[in-house]
Structure formats: C-alpha cells, structure tokens
C-alpha cells in the first residue's frame, strides 16, 4: 500500500470514466450506449471503494459502492427493457432512427 497504488486506482477510475463517456459520445447502438454507461458506473464504484479505504472507513465505502451497484443495475435493467421495447416498436436500436424529437 503506497502512493502508487492510489495513483493507479485513480487512473483506473478516470480511465473508466473517460472510456465510458467516449462510448456515449460515439456509439449509435442503444445497447452499446448502456454498455458505456456501465463502464462509467464501474469507475464510480471503484472510486467509492477507494475513498472508503483511504479515509479509513472501508466498510462505509463498500456500502456506498453496494448501493451504487444496485442503483445502476436497476438503471441498466430499465434501460435494457427500454431498448427491447424500442426494438419491438420502432424496429431498430440505431440512435439515428430514434431522433425524431428535435427543435
């Protein structure tokens, strides 16, 4: 346990955050957008665990991470359900085709 560990963990957090965000920016497939979101969430979990550890309250950090896991799994479930419904009623997952609401 030294400085470099915390640096590595935070790099991982920022990397996950950045890759997830990048995925949201360039992906046109709705399900893959949800994948991007999940990647971002992994970063959030990791950082919560990390801050818990480094503040000397590991259980608190873990319990927060647990809540985040649950919350974002629910979001993923609802999102996937939405995506399935989109596929059913619109017939595609391409964001280009679900961009009718504009202006």
């Amino acid at each position: 346990m030294n400085i470099s560990t915390s640096m590595i963990v935070l790099t991982a957090v920022m990397g996950l955050f950045g890759i997830g965000l990048y995925c949201l920016l360039i992906t046109r497939n709705l399900i893959r957008v949800l994948v991007g979101l999940q990647i971002m969430v992994k970063g959030a979990m990791l950082v919560l665990v990390f801050v818990g550890q480094s503040q000397g309250q590991p259980s608190l950090g873990q319990s927060m991470a647990l809540t985040v896991i649950v919350a974002d799994t629910i979001v993923a479930v609802v999102g996937l359900a939405l995506a399935v419904q989109v596929k059913r009623s619109i017939g595609t997952l391409d964001i280009a085709d679900i961009s009718k609401l504009k202006r």
Binding site: F17, G20, L21, L24, L30, V33, L34, L37, M40, V41, G43, A44, A71, D72, V75, V78, G79, L82, A83, Q85, V86, S89, I90, I98, S99, K100, L101
Partner: peptide, 16 residues
C-alpha cells in the same frame, strides 16, 4: 420511448 431513452441515459450520466 425516445424521450424515455434520452431521459434515462442523460440522467444516469449525471448521476455518475
């Protein structure tokens, strides 16, 4: 559905 999708993704991004 489209509105729902946008709402979900953007809210989730914000909450992260």
């Amino acid at each position: 559905l489209e509105a729902g999708v946008k709402y979900l993704i953007q809210s989730a991004t914000g909450s992260v």
